[in-house]
Computed example of a mutant assay.
Amino acid sequence: MKSKTNVIELFQEAKANLTYVKVCAPMVRYSKVQFRTLVKNFGVDLCFTPMILADSFCQNAKARSNEFVTTTYDTPLVVQFAAKSVDEFLDASKLVYPYVDGVDLNCGCPQRWAMKDGYGCALLSKPELVHNLLRTVRNNFPSNFTVSVKVRILQEVKKTIVMCQQLEKCGIDFMTVHGRTPVQKSGEVIDVDTLKEICDKATIPIIANGGIKTMQDADSLHDVLQCSGIMSASGILNNPALFNGYNKTPLSCIKQWMDLKDKSGDKLTFQCYHHHLVFMLEKILTKKQKQEFNYLSTFESVDNFLYKHIINDCNTMSAKIPVIDDFVICQFDKQITDKHSRKCRGCSKSICYCTCVYYDYDNNNGSYFTSYVKDADELDYMDSSIFEESS
């Protein structure tokens, strides 16, 4: 049986202890079960999956196998869906219900494809639809299964407050608010004043998101906002031990990532394994070592490199062993999947699982360390071009 957690109790316990829930954001490509397991060993209380298109998840078995893998101990876990149909959001939520602790609706994605297809921020111009989406799902599940939403602030403070108050009335259990507008870039300062006003007026837990690179950032923002949770995206990608107070990835974390790979078998791709290490090692490797690491192409070559240059003294490693090998074989409701399989998206839409590889890593040129992450805090959205060559 899959272990379950009451997410609302996490917020209640944190409040009683005068602290906050530490949250790992829904990051494209990276919020897989192996990374979720890793960060929970280093201070994270709550994890999200990457954003999943509800319609594709309902319609296609490949979408389900690509986007959702879990283990017995992968909890607390919230699945984030992009949805614009009540039927699809509800049915996608029913499919994952046995295996997760809540579902989240993305109403904050500013990417052009999402806006064009009516997802993310586009939903905020349709308050009645958002209400129906959230209220319907909330009414179809028990109270210990959370329904939440993630948004960005708007240009006008008053409209932002009204928006958040309207979302509360949908019956949601908590809300995540990114402190930048849809048009702002990740390097811009978050609007702490607006976040503060939202937290002061909210009657439900608020998770604040944006600009969290260190534990000090998280503590300082909580001190000002008195919010219920703090979420990190790019910061925790670069340093999975961020919420344990480390300023850069500790060697014990790197060793645990290697152990997780060994325990995952074919459920972790080389590209995912390598890319995570690229981020983790950014502050550790020399320029020359980065150039060498860049072009490694096998699990064995990566591990040999790490043992040669990084993991020199295994006695310094944490004794904590990650639990990852108890993968859950998900049995999705066939009546639901059959109903939706008759209306496949096809290849003309933004994301296709029919004839295309979801993420094309096969054609990478190994230039990860000569790249930078575009709009790093947008990792919690479905950006198809995260890596851009630096000038």
Rank of each mutant, 00 (worst) to 15 (best):
K126N: 13
C164Q: 05
V149A: 15
P110R: 00
K185N: 14
Q111S: 12
T214A: 12
L134G: 01
D91A: 14
R180V: 14
N139A: 13
V86S: 00
T176H: 08
V149F: 05
S85L: 07
E188F: 14
A82C: 12
V100I: 15
A122T: 02
C199T: 08
R112G: 09
L133R: 01
I161Q: 03
P110C: 08
T203C: 10
G120H: 02
D217H: 15
P182N: 10
R135A: 11
I212G: 14
V192H: 09
V130R: 09
A218L: 03
A83K: 01
N139K: 14
N106L: 00
V96M: 08
D104M: 14
P127H: 09
M175Q: 06
C164K: 06
V130K: 10
M163P: 01
I207F: 08
F81S: 13
L105N: 07
Q80N: 13
G108T: 04
S148C: 05
V86Q: 03
D101P: 01
V147I: 15
I206P: 06
P110K: 04
P98Y: 01
G108N: 07
N140P: 07
V137A: 13
G210F: 13
Q80M: 02
F141A: 01
N144G: 07
S143Q: 13
V162Y: 10
E197R: 07
K159P: 00
F81M: 12
V192F: 02
G108S: 06
T181E: 02
R152F: 05
Q216C: 03
G179N: 15
V78K: 04
L95Y: 06
P127V: 09
N209G: 07
I198C: 08
Y99F: 10
F141N: 05
T214V: 08
I161A: 00
V96E: 12
I207N: 11
V100C: 13
A122G: 03
V189F: 11
V183W: 15
G102Y: 00
L123K: 09
K126S: 06
G171H: 08
I198A: 04
G210Q: 04
N106K: 02
Q216P: 00
S125K: 14
G108M: 13
D219P: 00
A202E: 09
V162K: 14
T136C: 00
K201D: 04
A83R: 03
I153V: 15
G108Q: 06
A218R: 02
T194Q: 06
I153P: 11
K158S: 02
T160G: 02
